[in-house]
Simulated assay, not measured.
Amino acid sequence: MAKKNVNEMSFLDHLEDLRWHLIRATLAIVIAGVIAFLFKSFIFDVIILGPKQMSFPTYKYLCKISQFMNIDTTFCAEEFPFIIQNRTMSGQFSAHIWTSIYAGLVIAFPYVLYQLWSFISPGLHDNERKHSRGFILVSSLLFFIGVLFGYYVITPLSINFLATYSVSQEIENQIDIGSYISLVRSSAIASGFVFELPIVIYFLTKVGLVTPQFLKKYRKYALILVLVLSAIITPPDIASQIIVAIPILILYQISIYISALVVRNQKRAAKSKELKTK
């Protein structure tokens, strides 16, 4: 049966259409998750447990910087003073399942975006679809850059601080597998979604909820919010907070430019329409 025109579709038709887009997106995540499940050694030994090894690229790079500046640091240690343990019967199997699902989400993210765009785009005007070309590519690129930033910057900084922090020499760190994986997962995926800020601002500007003047007016409050956020997700040292805050502030500035561009295009379209009606 041919697909109905969006203007002819009822509310229930839209719900049915949305249901199938969600089913296809979920199926893609499941398939990608199954693939990740089969590559258990690579996912855990190389990716998940990578930041636990002092041979991790971030530690080697920061160690060289510290040595160059003649600063004592824990980045040059031989190994972290903690072990990862499992304390429940199904702990490792559950960790395998949930890690595969989240890996499937990351892998299938472009296709999930494609399904979201396929549902939204029929309701847009031709000029809006034209100006929104590259949505999937740009959104996916920002997401993957954010994931890499979280994995190679936030995760190792957090592990290095938390693993070497001690309130007493009598206490030994034996980290539960769920706690460790949660830190790696949340740092990477949360950063991926944070890097979607320009895309979010683009659509909020399109619907009139945000303006470039609003973003500029509250820029100083955004700066405070970013510093607070970076203080929460990173170790409590200035260097780490600045490393995390800088890209987020750059994204905010880019969002202001995108918002201004959207408003300018809307004014041009309105002016062109007004001239045609005269």
Rank of each mutant, 00 (worst) to 15 (best):
F203Y: 15
I145W: 01
L105F: 15
S272H: 03
M9D: 02
V138S: 09
M54V: 11
L49M: 14
I23W: 04
L38Q: 06
K40L: 02
F193E: 01
L15A: 11
G104F: 03
G33S: 12
S255Y: 07
K273W: 02
I250E: 05
L215D: 03
S230L: 03
R185F: 10
K40E: 15
F80D: 07
I238G: 00
E274G: 02
K276Y: 11
K130Y: 12
V30L: 13
S166E: 13
T73Q: 10
D237A: 05
L12H: 01
P81L: 07
F39A: 03
R129V: 01
H14I: 09
V147P: 01
I246H: 08
D45G: 06
N5H: 14
V200P: 00
G178D: 11
N160Y: 01
N265S: 09
F193N: 06
S186I: 13
K64M: 13
S132M: 03
P156D: 11
A36V: 15
Q213V: 06
V262P: 08
F42W: 14
N7Y: 10
L162M: 15
Y202N: 02
N127I: 14
Y59W: 13
Q174M: 11
V207C: 09
K278G: 10
I71T: 08
V184K: 00
I136Q: 10
Q266N: 07
V6D: 06
K278C: 01
I23V: 15
M1I: 10
F214C: 03
N5R: 14
S259K: 06
S186F: 07
S259T: 06
F44H: 08
E16M: 05
